[in-house]
Amino acid sequence: MTETVDRPMVRFEGVTKRYGSLTVLDSLNLDIGRGEKVAIIGPSGSGKTTVLRMLMTLERIDGGVIWVDGEPMTHMQKNGKLVPAEAKHLRRVRSKIGMVFQHFNLFPHMTALGNCIEAPMTVLGLPRREAEERAADLLNLVGLGEKKGHYPAQLSGGQQQRVAIARALAMRPKIMLFDEVTSALDPELCGEVLQVIRKLGSEHDLTMLMVTHQMGFAKEFADRVCFFYQGKICEQGEPRELFTAPKNERTQQFLRAVLEAV
């Protein structure tokens, strides 16, 4: 396979996901470009989280192929055919992806610094000093240089989420996934987390995929917005366009409901 600059960073190709008889994602096609920032919006239960979790290999897929950086992730090529991926292959592709969870999922028995050096040391095999330097830089980046020695329980929700972002970044991913990273936070704490994401977007060459309910943020930050409805992308486009003049009726309904709620 040859390197091509314009091949997408992530490609969902006819991806289907079912839970029992419930089809959550119905042969989804979605390309995400290198360095692109894509916001996913949509009503509850429309499959937004599922998209991210499948990309993070937290869920098996029932059909289709996910490509990452030009390589099939869920499958691998063997004798010219695509076969389901082995653990080793998954691990290699997974190293390009980082994820931040709605409920942080920090390791409660480790300090902020401990959380950030754990995987670099055990997975990447960095020596402690190097891992600590990297973690300290990242904690500074998210504005928590002073809180290195604090345990998650000693941090506010916003601070915990910023540690979680630093932890994911410490693995130097090319793609970052954010699943409603502010929805477990009090409104006044959302700002600090969004600020960090903004900074990441402008300073780093990361591909970002975020599920969010914060339309304002999506509008200002994303290059593209995808509206999900019942496991399908109902409408997508530039934020200005999609938010001001949605074409699809469902999108209109959804945006109206969201705006009313605010």
Partner: peptide, 17 residues
């Protein structure tokens, strides 16, 4: 909590790690 396992997957740790 299951989220702890998921976090380790997201950080690409092996099951044993």
């Amino acid at each position: 909590q299951r989220g702890q396992w998921e976090a380790t997957t997201a950080l690409n740790m092996t099951r044993w790690q």
